[in-house]
């Protein structure tokens, strides 16, 4: 599966290879820019009962109701109070829009295929299996998120 993803990334076409990078905790992550529809500040979140803790609830995005996921909690990090720098990255996967709450949005980066190495196979637990690759940009390391998997794998995770 990871191999497949890599080959996909290798076929460079337009937006592929451009990533929006953001910080959650000490790590920096990247998500393919093609999925991102907008970035907004944290706004009032309406809680819903019976949801896993990392789904914080729903927000009103100009009349559209969009669920929001706290990536921090998703990746098993300690929850933190939201600040001015906390952002919601709204991504669009198929028909479903979802907001990702992240600590801080950094920048859009061009990452070429040579800079990306596959993640180690050993640690398949936790958030690791949602990482499609690890990119080295200068001194920094960015973990590239397989967003479709992160969102669609939801079901199994709730079941576990």
């Amino acid at each position: 599966m990871d191999q497949d993803n890599l080959t996909l990334i290798n076929e460079e076409d337009g937006t592929r290879g451009r990533y929006l990078t953001f910080a959650v905790g000490d790590e920096d992550y990247g998500v393919e820019i093609a999925y991102v529809t907008e970035i907004i500040n944290v706004q009032t979140i309406t809680e819903l009962p019976e949801l896993p803790p990392y789904i914080r609830g729903i927000i009103n995005l100009r009349g559209k109701i969009v669920p929001v996921m706290d990536v921090r909690i998703r990746f098993n990090k300690e929850p933190e109070e939201y600040t001015d720098r906390t952002c919601i990255i709204v991504v669009d996967i198929g028909d479903a829009g979802i907001g990702l709450i992240v600590d801080l949005v950094r920048e859009v980066l061009e990452i070429s295929a040579e800079q990306i190495v596959p993640p180690s196979e050993s640690k398949s637990s936790g958030g690791n299996r949602y990482i499609s690759g690890i990119a080295k940009t200068g001194e920094d390391i960015k973990l590239l998120i397989d967003i479709e998997r992160l969102v669609s794998d939801e079901m199994t995770l709730v079941m576990e």
Binding site: L51, I55, P67, V158
Partner: peptide, 23 residues
């Protein structure tokens, strides 16, 4: 009346006691 996003319903089925939402 607006439906609860399908993203959520797909995951947990019906939310108990909630039939929809509104703005």
């Amino acid at each position: 009346v607006k439906p609860i996003p399908s993203f959520i319903l797909r995951r947990i089925g019906k939310i108990r006691g909630v039939s929809g939402c509104t703005i």
